[in-house]
Write a protein that binds this DNA or RNA. Structure first.
Lengths: 334, 334
DNA sequence: GCACTTTACACAAACGTTTACAATAGCTTT
DNA sequence: AAAGCTATTGTAAACGTTTGTGTAAAGTGC
């Protein structure tokens, strides 16, 4: 139905080879006159290139696939904007795939969709790949890089913040404001990221001569619900004066639950969030945060894919952003 | 580098035709014995199918492209989940493309990425296509459907809520609670969607014998900032007792700005949001909303693409969800 | 006017699949 | 035992491109 270069060739009275060269702007391969004819023919036929066919013969693709896990937290869009920006600079296209939350089967489908087609590389945003799917990915021989997630033993390529620093910096910020009883809410301890944040948190406290009571750390999956649950566990008469939320969502969960328990933020309880997405400034009071540089992660991810030699890991900077959810503690409360 | 069916054919000692048939499970075309051999060969070679090549000859694709505009508001993920669910039911894959906000060039790139490749159809989520890009889309001959956006004159296929009803229902809900001075904040009047909402709003007031003062309607682009700006325009001593936010984001903008102006929600000002995404329950007080059924839009969109005969438009239901941001007005305030 | 280079184009193979058609072998019928 | 099936497999064309090689015509230098 749709016009092909064959149709153009016929209409312009040249060979398909010439058409291809003209359309690809391979100058010094054709005269201005034929270029004219070809362009005209293409225009009247409403020609649309079939890039898939072209990629088949050139054996190279210009599309980057970004695989995201369904957004329990919401930083993905910032990473994607970074990816888009850098991709555009190098004339690459970006397609995005949803891989669901923890459903290995859905992950597999997303992965297959891109592996079976020509893509130049795969970026995985905070997706914790099931073992069999990781094998799939590696078998595909395609360049790939994990973003905003880290791994312990295996030497997988990833780009993320220094999660130990994240935990440390958040905790230290609260210590600096005079807090000494500090919780950590909604963090996950099954994966490397969460474990590192806990370690950073613990170390900061230790440096200040404080030992975290076991119930100060409430585990969870970084979600809003996890934050709520954690705060419910702390209770209305908690001895804590501050809480580190494992993510923006978790911090909001903590904050809303605290309010429901009759605790005002930051008067009765200070909160600091980890991530620093736009959500932090949407809520009231706005949330002080340890902000990750998601945009740069996206950029670095694309660069990683383009690089011949993969240097396997990279750390992006973090930054404390002061907003309204942390109160300076002068004397002792309680 | 990667193994092809040719390699499998050689290893298994059969023709590529047979390999293809075995791998495609075209039963009754081969014996169990050869199937065995082929499968084994495929496994040892780590064969990955090149679907692009297959799609080239079969001239049909199993992927649906969803084009989203960068998320100023955030309902896209719900629509996408609907798309995914329905697509999965029919063995279709989904890829997502970012088309930016209002940058025609970025739109074009996103569109081209999919038009030039084999896709079975295109879903456009709330993207307001530049005229030249619409032409591009239509030239491609691909099935397409707009979601969560409507058009006036042109007969384009779209699926969305009844925007007049949305405006009407939100306003009526406030009238039912005794409000009579009601603003509309952050709505856009350049496009059909916004105009319809304004009309519904105006009609509801009119039915109650109220004429909206010109400054009750504050135009904007549905964003958080638009909500803030609107509220700033109303001012601290506004005579309004309630405001309809044009989107969840806009409503939050109104609410936070109101608080900054010293107005408590809902005590001093009631707010109702349009969209009803999860954001509504994240903020405090949670936002009463006219909720759209985004998930169903996604489902309907996929069905539309699959349908032979396109019935061009479809309306999905809406629903009032009561939360905490609307106060019942008994006597008159002011 | 010869040898040589350049310019401008066409031919045809290749990319990795699917599938219509042909071909072979073994059975069944008669 | 000839004819006709059926089951299984192979051959080769096709999808829409790109690109190496070939070649005729035109231009250049002597």
């Amino acid at each position: 139905m749709a016009a092909t270069i064959k149709d153009i060739a016929k209409l312009a009275g040249v060979s398909t080879a010439t058409v291809s060269r003209v359309l690809a702007h391979k100058t010094a391969f054709f005269s201005a006159a034929t270029a004219q004819k070809v362009q005209a023919a293409a225009a009247t036929l409403g020609y649309q290139k079939n890039t898939a066919a072209a990629e088949l013969v050139t054996r190279q693709s210009h599309v980057i696939a970004a695989v995201v896990n369904s957004t329990k937290t919401n930083f993905a869009s910032q990473i994607i904007e970074g990816i888009q920006a850098e991709a555009h600079r190098h004339d690459l296209n970006v397609i995005i795939l949803y891989a669901g939350d923890a459903d290995a089967e859905q992950q597999r489908r997303a992965l297959m969709t891109v592996i079976e087609r020509p893509v130049m590389g795969i970026l995985l945003l905070s997706v914790d790949l099931a073992a069999e799917n990781l094998t799939l990915l590696q078998q595909s021989q395609l360049p790939y890089c994990f973003l905003s997630i880290s791994f312990d033993g295996e030497r997988l390529p990833y780009i993320t913040s220094d999660d130990w620093q994240v935990g440390y910096l958040a905790t230290q910020a609260l210590l600096d404001q005079g807090h000494r009883r500090i919780g950590l809410a909604g963090v996950d301890s099954d994966f490397h990221t969460g474990r590192l944040r806990v370690l950073g948190y613990t170390q900061a406290l230790k440096n200040a001569g404080i030992t975290a009571a076991p119930d100060w750390i409430q585990l969870g999956n970084y979600s809003y619900a996890a934050g709520q649950t954690a705060m419910r566990a702390y209770g209305a008469k908690t001895s804590l004066t501050a809480v580190v939320g494992a993510s923006d969502m978790a911090a909001i969960g903590v904050m809303n639950q605290a309010r429901d328990l009759g605790l005002a933020v930051p008067t009765d309880l200070s909160i600091i969030a980890i991530d620093g997405t736009e959500l932090c400034s949407l809520v009231q009071p706005s949330l002080t945060s340890v902000s990750q540089n998601f945009y740069e992660m996206g950029i670095a991810g694309v660069q990683q894919l383009r690089a011949k030699e993969a240097l396997p890991q990279k750390i992006t900077p973090i930054q404390l952003v002061n907003r309204q959810s942390v109160r300076r503690l002068n004397g002792d409360r309680k």
